[in-house]
Simulated assay, not measured.
Amino acid sequence: MTEPKSRPPEKELPPVLSRVAFLAVVSGLTPLIPVPFLDDYALRQARESMVLTLLSEHDLPKKPARAVEMLAGSHIGRTAGGRLLSSLKGLALFPVRKVFRKVFFVLWVKDCVDVASSALHHGYLLNHALERGDLKADELEGAQPEKIHDAIVAACAELDPRPINQALRRLFAGSRLLMAEATRAFFSDQAPGPRTPSPDESAEVKTLTERLIAALWEERGYFVTLQAHYDTHLKARRAA
Rank of each mutant, 00 (worst) to 15 (best):
residue 175 S to N: 06
residue 124 Y to D: 07
residue 164 I to A: 00
residue 161 P to K: 00
residue 139 E to G: 10
residue 152 I to D: 08
residue 129 A to G: 01
residue 204 E to Q: 08
residue 131 E to I: 05
residue 179 M to I: 12
residue 205 V to Y: 00
residue 127 N to M: 02
residue 183 T to H: 14
residue 165 N to E: 08
residue 170 R to W: 08
residue 168 L to F: 12
residue 135 L to W: 02
residue 135 L to F: 03
residue 139 E to M: 12
residue 134 D to R: 01
residue 141 E to A: 13
residue 174 G to D: 14
residue 193 G to C: 04
residue 124 Y to E: 02
residue 143 A to K: 13
residue 147 K to A: 12
residue 163 P to G: 09
residue 166 Q to L: 15
residue 182 A to T: 14
residue 132 R to S: 13
residue 149 H to W: 15
residue 158 E to D: 12
residue 177 L to W: 06
residue 132 R to Y: 07
residue 199 P to A: 06
residue 154 A to H: 10
residue 145 P to Q: 10
residue 144 Q to A: 01
residue 196 T to E: 09
residue 179 M to F: 13
residue 136 K to T: 08
residue 169 R to W: 14
residue 181 E to F: 11
residue 171 L to M: 11
residue 196 T to H: 06
residue 138 D to H: 09
residue 127 N to K: 03
residue 133 G to S: 07
residue 198 S to D: 05
residue 141 E to T: 08
residue 122 H to Y: 15
residue 131 E to S: 10
residue 190 Q to L: 11
residue 170 R to N: 14
residue 150 D to G: 00
residue 153 V to G: 04
residue 154 A to M: 09
residue 182 A to H: 11
residue 138 D to V: 03
residue 145 P to M: 08
residue 135 L to C: 05
residue 170 R to Y: 04
residue 173 A to F: 10
residue 145 P to G: 11
residue 196 T to V: 13
residue 180 A to N: 08
residue 198 S to P: 02
residue 148 I to T: 09
residue 171 L to R: 11
residue 130 L to E: 02
residue 196 T to G: 01
residue 194 P to G: 02
residue 146 E to Y: 13
residue 139 E to S: 13
residue 194 P to F: 03
residue 153 V to S: 06
residue 146 E to P: 04
residue 146 E to M: 13
residue 125 L to Y: 04
residue 146 E to L: 15
residue 126 L to T: 05
residue 138 D to T: 04
residue 138 D to I: 02
residue 149 H to Q: 12
residue 192 P to E: 04
residue 173 A to V: 12
residue 163 P to H: 09
residue 129 A to H: 03
residue 205 V to S: 01
residue 128 H to A: 14
residue 159 L to G: 00
residue 191 A to Y: 08
residue 163 P to D: 09
residue 133 G to Y: 03
residue 201 E to R: 11
residue 172 F to W: 10
residue 144 Q to P: 00
residue 126 L to K: 07
residue 128 H to I: 07
residue 157 A to G: 12
residue 140 L to A: 06
residue 181 E to Q: 15
residue 190 Q to P: 00
residue 179 M to H: 13
residue 155 A to W: 05
residue 168 L to H: 09
residue 189 D to V: 04
residue 205 V to M: 08
residue 134 D to P: 00
residue 202 S to D: 09
residue 193 G to W: 14
residue 177 L to H: 09
residue 161 P to D: 00
residue 175 S to D: 02
residue 185 A to P: 10
residue 134 D to H: 04
residue 204 E to N: 06
residue 136 K to L: 12
residue 181 E to T: 14
residue 199 P to Y: 06
residue 165 N to S: 00
residue 193 G to Q: 11
residue 147 K to V: 03
residue 189 D to S: 07
residue 164 I to M: 02
residue 134 D to W: 05
residue 140 L to C: 05
residue 193 G to R: 12
residue 165 N to V: 00
residue 127 N to I: 01
residue 133 G to I: 06
residue 133 G to W: 05
residue 125 L to N: 06
residue 135 L to Y: 02
residue 198 S to R: 12
residue 162 R to K: 08
residue 147 K to R: 14
residue 143 A to P: 06
residue 135 L to R: 01
residue 137 A to P: 03
residue 125 L to V: 04
residue 168 L to C: 11
residue 187 F to K: 03
